[in-house]
Design a binder for these strands. Structure first.
Lengths: 348, 348
DNA sequence: CTGAAAGCGCTTACAG
DNA sequence: CTGAAAGCGCTTACAG
């Protein structure tokens, strides 16, 4: 545990001032190429790594972004979505030598408080907002705070911050038309939390598509994404008089749970029931039969979000209220239908 | 976006020195109760939040701990284990107003490099080492570095750092004796990565327990924890001449995959095959029948690890090479058998 | 109990 | 191109 080497040590060893060392290290003008090379060599030899706190204090930036997650431990664990998203985010951040600070919160109020504190402390330079809601207090809050932020979800009308999103409507149309082509006329959907933006976008898309097809029924039940609710709703659906011949689930966890219920009731899949899952995690390939799903590249989605946030942060210093940057909206590739064993034609 | 308030502002408003403000804010002696109260009131009114970087630079501590995860995006996502662990860790850290810095790495070399950099930068005050191996380079590396660290796993012989762990041997005995009591004589195990410490501990425990019972066979296949390998090994096991009547999986993901294969082969569960999973995530209740599992409180495990690390960090300043603290070993409650529908007696 | 000052390790105008 | 100096916002001995 030797003493940490600082720019003062390098300056002494190189026989120059600390300022010169800083210029050399940061690749800025102010030193000749000769001294720059010498300084760099000495720094490398001494194993110099700049102290973050000192740098942050000087440039008034944390070189870190934050994510506050408002989900319970068990919900977070079971949803492959978040870990995949975080993987993508983290990979991009660390490539830009940004750190990722994570905090789990219980309520919106707590979440807002975390943002306020992080920003006041300068613990982060910006945040990523997950689980965007239809009417989301956080959006205005961070904008008012002046905290750089990117919404991971959208599109958001009248946004005061950039959003990274993918079209949820198109995949909804795809899957419904696919099921229709397979002969399904009674389709049910186990949807996510109604307060989430993408749930409401899907609600609308399904309703509009259904209106254009002569379906016998298209019912939707909202849930909290847990396997418990997925199973419970499925049980109710499958016990009804004219039960659906196909069920679409808004996440993979509920689809797996629904499949379990179908097995429990002795239904043959896909002969007696077709099942579709959103979010093609490996979970979908674990079941028998494997689940037909709507696959998105979630790590790429996280990556893109991090990228936009980093550009927002670096842009922020130069021209603060840049409307063009703020309302920047990036659309990712929509979910693709990935048909597997859990869907099939309705027997004549 | 008003200017951030600093202790200088408070000092000016209160008519005292910056030093007095610092003493008052940190609850240290050096100010009278009267001025302390006045300073605190002004600070609260002005919405003061101390700048992290400045504090870190002064006290030479980051008020943050780091976790480097060496797993792929998809493996991380599918394993509820990590998110649950992180939830527990994070809850405890933020209660102590420590931040959590997360990084995902590809190789051990990268991981070691991350530790070196984090410590040199003072980006973290300590790290949590997950996925402890039987022969783990990281242990000596961080000890040599002088970087405070806690191993999340153990027990570790000749440890130079504290370990938080739970006994894996006892649950192994429990489950094997339970299966034996149900009449199972041909038991198979789909184990985790052989390089991981807990895998080898379980290997030994099963072997020793099996030796004391008159089993016909007790085979073990090692895997990488993915559903793919779980399914593949299960297929092989169930296609063999004298196939096992019970299979124990080292994680829940493989157990779910194994159950899928059993369904695929038309086996009745538990009549023709009993299935046991380690790690009782909600995943185990999603299947039909629900999986008998070995349940641990993983968030609590993470919590405890974070707690030990924080105490190690605060102890570190006072008496650096404290052997008693360093080799501190905390044993958590071992996994408990949670019987559900996937296990049953062997038909006569 | 209180104030003035130095220091943590960087960055960045500002003179030479 | 280079050096000396001030400053980022805290903490902490050190005198009064």
């Amino acid at each position: 545990m030797t003493r940490r080497v600082t720019i003062a040590d390098i300056a002494a060893a190189a026989g120059v001032s600390k300022g010169a060392v800083s210029y050399a290290l940061n690749g800025r003008p102010g030193v000749s190429e000769a001294t720059r090379g010498k300084i760099l060599a000495i720094a490398a030899e001494m194993g110099f790594v700049p102290n973050r706190a000192a740098r942050s204090l000087s440039v008034s930036s944390a070189q870190a972004v934050g994510i506050a997650l408002r989900r319970s431990a068990r919900t977070l664990g079971i949803e492959p979505y978040f870990m995949e998203l975080i993987s993508g985010i983290e990979a991009t951040l660390s490539a830009g030598s940004f750190g990722l600070t994570l905090q789990i919160v219980g309520t919106v109020e707590e979440e807002l408080e975390v943002y306020r504190r992080w920003w006041a402390e300068r613990r982060v330079d910006g945040v990523l907002l997950c689980d965007v809601g239809t009417s989301d207090r956080r959006l205005d809050f961070v904008a008012d705070l002046g905290l750089p932020a990117v919404a991971v979800g959208g599109p958001i009308e009248g946004a005061r911050l950039p959003a990274v999103w993918h079209d949820d409507a198109e995949p909804c149309r795809d899957i419904l038309e696919y099921l229709y082509a397979l002969g399904h006329r009674r389709v049910a959907r186990v949807a996510g939390l109604p307060r989430l933006l993408h749930t409401s976008i899907r609600d609308t898309a399904y309703a509009e598509t259904a209106a254009g097809l002569d379906l016998e029924s298209m019912v939707t039940f909202h849930s909290d994404y847990t396997g418990e609710q997925g199973a419970q709703i499925t049980r109710r659906l499958l016990s009804s008089a004219r039960r659906p011949t196909a069920i679409i689930y808004d996440n993979d966890v509920m689809a797996v749970a629904g499949l379990g219920v179908a097995h429990e009731l002795g239904l043959e899949i896909p002969e007696q029931l077709s099942v579709v899952a959103w979010d093609d995690s490996p979970l979908c390939r674990l079941t028998h039969p494997a689940l037909t799903s709507l696959a998105r590249d979630i790590p790429a989605y996280g990556s893109k979000s991090a990228e936009v946030l980093m550009s927002l942060i670096s842009a922020d210093g130069t021209e603060p209220p840049n409307a063009a940057v703020r309302t920047f909206s990036v659309q990712c590739r929509p979910a693709q239908l990935s048909p597997r064993g859990s869907t099939g034609p309705v027997p004549a």
